[in-house]
Amino acid sequence: MDDAVRLDAVSKVYGKGQGAVAALREVTIGIPRGGFTAVMGPSGSGKSTFLHCAAGLDRPTSGSVRLGDIELAGMDETRLTELRRERVGFVFQAFNLVSSLTVLQNITLPLRLAGTRVDRAWLDEVVRRVRLDGRTGHRPAELSGGQQQRVAIARALVTRPEVVFGDEPTGALDMMTARDVLTLLREVVDGLGQTVVMVTHDPLAASYADTVLFLADGRVVDTMSAPTVDSVADRMTRLGAWV
């Protein structure tokens, strides 16, 4: 299976001199296409920096990041912005919906910003997949938290991205609603062949993934296939995350 995202010897250092902080240290890892990968680690382990560098939101201090067959190094900010808009989807803990727009308008916003024609058949498929039929004329304030996050997932899918990156996408949701959203992410991987990379602190969320990457002190220190809630929680405890 080829890689949707590839990091080679990626380091990220914030600050200079004695005040410099290494958030990532020589990380080399491939994220398989068509899989669901969770990224976990203690606070300060580099999870968010890993996601930001992998998604082209932040530039590594050294090393190489590839999105599919595209090398991100050397791209100016305009080209990076276009690349993210065309080939990357994002789902955040805060739903980041525009309150004055309807569900349908929020979902299609990336296409409108890019000046891209809406593929009506694909839009209908995405709306059906996230179970928002009959809600497309509503505004975010008329929806539950789980429904708002499903709008955000639909918005991330509508451009047919190479990868959907999730940054604690269930962090603001209760457990039942979180399970619903995680089931949906699992379905878009299995049913649509989508690649999902999700940063989370929650072993339950990680248990929905195919693979878990564990970070500590800016390095990938372990990987786990076929994770369960208990196996992830045990590994996190041994990382010192919950001591």
Rank of each mutant, 00 (worst) to 15 (best):
E71N: 00
V199D: 03
G171L: 08
T81N: 04
W242R: 14
G137H: 12
G30E: 08
M198T: 13
A114K: 02
T195W: 07
D119G: 04
V163I: 09
V13M: 12
R128P: 00
G171E: 08
V21H: 15
G41I: 14
L57N: 05
L7F: 07
L182D: 03
V130W: 10
A114F: 07
A94F: 14
T116D: 09
R79M: 04
F92S: 06
V127Y: 05
F36N: 13
D174T: 12
I153Q: 03
G171D: 09
V103A: 11
V212K: 10
A4M: 06
D8Y: 02
S231C: 05
I107T: 12
S100L: 01
A178P: 05
K47I: 14
T211V: 13
G34M: 08
T200C: 12
V221Q: 06
V126G: 04
R85S: 10
G137P: 00
R85D: 01
S62Y: 00
A141H: 06
L111M: 11
G63W: 03
V196A: 01
R129V: 08
T81I: 01
A38P: 14
F90G: 04
A154I: 10
P32R: 15
D69H: 05
D69L: 01
R186Q: 14
R139G: 10
F95H: 13
T183H: 13
K12D: 04
P42Y: 06
G35W: 08
A216F: 01
D222H: 13
T211G: 02
V220T: 13
L109K: 03
M198H: 02
R238Q: 15
V21S: 11
N96S: 11
Y14H: 14
P203W: 03
R150M: 07
G166R: 05
I107W: 07
F165N: 09
G191Y: 00
V13A: 10
G218K: 09
Q18C: 00
T61C: 04
V88Y: 09
T49H: 09
R139F: 05
E86N: 14
R85V: 02
R160N: 02
A73S: 12
L143Y: 01
R139H: 10
D167Y: 07
L173A: 10
L185M: 15
D222F: 06
R112M: 09
D222Q: 15
G68S: 03
G115T: 03
V39M: 13
G74W: 00
P140F: 07
G193D: 01
V151G: 06
L7K: 10
P161K: 12
T49P: 06
G68D: 02
I153A: 08
S45R: 08
D58T: 12
S43Y: 11
A54S: 13
V189D: 01
V91W: 09
D58N: 13
I107G: 08
A241D: 09
D180F: 03
F214R: 11
I29V: 15
P161L: 12
G193M: 01
R135I: 06
T61F: 06
A38L: 14
L143I: 04
A241V: 13
T211Y: 00
F92K: 04
E71A: 07
T37F: 09
L215W: 08
W242S: 14
L173Q: 09
L113R: 02
Q149R: 08
V5P: 03
A23D: 11
F95Y: 15
D76Y: 05
V181G: 09
V189L: 02
S231F: 01
S62I: 00
T49A: 10
S43R: 14
T183E: 14
A20M: 09
L80C: 04
C53R: 06
A152N: 03
L192F: 12
